Simulated assay, not measured.
Amino acid sequence: MYYMEELSLFQTIIIAIVEGLTEFLPVSSTGHMIITQHLLGVPSSDFVKAFTVIIQFGAILSVVVLYWKRFFKLNKCKIFDTNIVNNNRSARWIEYGKRFLYKYDFYWKLLIAFIPAAFFGLLFSDKIDEMLESVTVVAIMLVIGGIVMLFVDKWFAKSSSNQEMTPKKAFCIGLFQCIAMIPGVSRSMATIVGGMAQKLTRKNAAEFSFFLAVPTMFAATAYKLLKLVTSENGLQILQDNIVTLIVGNVVAFIVALLAIKFFISFVTKYGFKAFGYYRIIVGGIIIIFMLLGYNLEID
């Protein structure tokens, strides 16, 4: 059986541009794609739901490209205990463990931060998919998140650039990331606030948020692809829409490269207030339209 492409080239490019622009900004990329999907008249389907997640892969590649030295640089192992007796097996294994954790320290902390989202994401996968269809949830969370953004700089004004990232802090940031499973919250916002709550500077918190996006969004993309392929006629649907997925990822990658550079520069100089006002305005407009009787929910 042949399945028509579910998104036109125009719709694909617009949604991918929105993804690339908003994925790493604290404004909720998922929320913006849901709103964009409605404005473009794109009906909700298994493929469209998968598409909005899969094109995040293009966005995360931009992080790897921009920060490739950080991603592929391993710490040089140092000697922790020069007095280890060679025939002391327990001490020797402890030493190997310390060296391993030190060498792969960057990846180890990312893994720790990733674990909470992986656990709760699998646990509440179906509920999350249900919420992804609700523009109402998106609008409300945009406003609430916007209010948080107005005060976050003041709350964490004493963050220190000398604060080192530790496994405990990484795990706490990972817990904050779980809040972003609610559409409209923003994964970037949740993890940046979590980082600043752990005494990281705005820049350091933002960068760790970018790094954490790589395993998180890669896992989400792989999971969505697996669900799509294993669903009824899923493999055929994927084959018929492969060009759409390629175009979406390429566009998201290019736009995200520019967005990340802009965001780091902007937030370092001006903080988060502008994003807070933006979220409140967009969420407020959507709520007003819905109160006036306009049906903005996705069919």
Rank of each mutant, 00 (worst) to 15 (best):
A59D: 10
S62C: 02
K98V: 03
D81G: 05
F47E: 05
F51T: 02
I147N: 00
K76T: 14
L66Q: 10
S90I: 10
D46G: 15
Y96C: 13
L142S: 09
Y67I: 07
F80W: 07
A117G: 08
E133L: 11
A113L: 03
L66N: 06
W108N: 08
V63T: 06
V148W: 03
Q56W: 00
K98M: 13
K109R: 12
K109C: 06
F80L: 11
S44F: 11
I144Q: 01
V138W: 06
R99N: 06
W93S: 15
L142F: 15
W68I: 06
Y96E: 14
K98R: 11
W108T: 15
M131D: 02
R92T: 11
V143E: 06
F80E: 06
I147A: 06
D129T: 09
Y107E: 04
F80D: 12
Y104S: 01
S125R: 15
V135H: 03
A91K: 14
K103W: 03
G121H: 12
L74T: 12
L132I: 07
I147M: 05
P116A: 04
V138F: 02
K69Y: 07
F71R: 01
L123G: 09
L111D: 04
V148P: 01
K127S: 12
N83S: 10
T52P: 01
I79Y: 07
A113D: 02
N75Y: 04
S44A: 12
G97T: 13
G145C: 03
E95R: 01
V135K: 12
K98F: 13
V148M: 09
G145A: 06
L74K: 08
L132Y: 03
F124L: 14
F106Q: 09
F120H: 08
L111G: 10
S45H: 11
V53C: 05
N87R: 09
F72D: 08
N83E: 07
R99A: 10
D129W: 06
D46Q: 15
D129H: 04
L61C: 03
N87Y: 01
V48D: 04
V143W: 01
Y67C: 13
F106P: 06
V138S: 08
N75M: 13
I112M: 07
G121I: 14
S44Y: 13
I60L: 12
I55E: 12
A50S: 14
V64R: 00
K109I: 07
V48Y: 04
G146Q: 04
V65I: 13
W108A: 11
G97Y: 11
N88H: 07
K98G: 07
S90H: 12
L111W: 01
I79N: 15
G146D: 00
T52H: 01
Y67H: 14
K109S: 09
I55F: 10
V65E: 03
F57G: 13
L111N: 00
F47Q: 05
V138N: 04
F106N: 08
Y96V: 10
F114L: 02
D81N: 15
F119W: 05
A50L: 04
I147F: 13
V148L: 07
V48S: 03
G146E: 01
F72Y: 09
V65C: 00
E133D: 12
L101D: 03
K76S: 15
I147S: 08
A118N: 09
R99K: 07
D46A: 14
G146H: 06
L66S: 01
S45E: 08
L110D: 13
L122Y: 15
L123W: 15
V137R: 00
